[in-house]
Design a binder for these strands. Structure first.
Length: 109
DNA sequence: CCATTGACCGACT
DNA sequence: AAGTCGGCCAATG
C-alpha cells in the first residue's frame, strides 16, 4: 500500500518499528537511500500523527526527543515511550543504543 | 516564482 | 574539545 514516494516509505518503516524499539531519522533516511535527507523524514512524519504511524518511536541520532514539541501534549511522547518500556530522562532516551532499531540491520538486507 | 523554514546529520574550524 | 556552518528536499508565505 502506498509503496511509492519518499513519504510513504517513511511511514512504512516507522510502522514496522517493533514495540519497545526506537529508531533515528538518519537511519530511516539512509535506508531509503537518502543519508543526507534526514530532515525530509521528519517532515514526512509531520503528517504521520494522523496516521497509524508511531512517530514517537522516532528520535534524533542521540536519542533526544526533538519532535516531542510537535506532539499534542508536552510529555505525550515521553509517556508513550515509557509506556513501551523505554526510559526517558530529560527529553532523552536512556540506553538509546539498546533500544535502537536500525532498519538497515534489523530488516536484513 | 523567490525566499525562508524545518521532527537532522556530518564535516570543518 | 566545543562551536559553527553547510547540505538535503519539500512545503509554506
Amino acid at each position: 500500500m502506498s509503496g511509492d514516494g519518499f513519504f510513504s516509505k517513511v511511514y512504512e518503516i516507522t510502522k514496522l518499528i517493533p514495540y519497545g524499539r526506537i529508531t533515528t531519522y538518519g537511519a530511516i533516511a539512509k535506508y531509503l537511500g537518502a543519508p543526507g535527507s534526514a530532515r525530509m523524514v521528519g517532515w514526512a512524519l509531520n503528517g504521520s500523527d494522523k496516521l497509524n504511524v508511531p512517530a514517537h518511536r522516532v528520535v534524533n541520532r542521540i536519542g533526544l526527543l526533538t519532535g516531542k514539541h510537535h506532539f499534542q501534549g508536552t510529555n505525550l511522547m515521553k509517556e508513550l515511550l515509557e509506556s513501551e518500556g523505554v526510559k526517558v530522562v530529560d527529553n532523552k532516551v536512556r540506553d538509546f543504543e539498546e533500544y535502537f532499531w536500525d532498519p538497515t540491520t534489523e530488516l536484513t538486507l
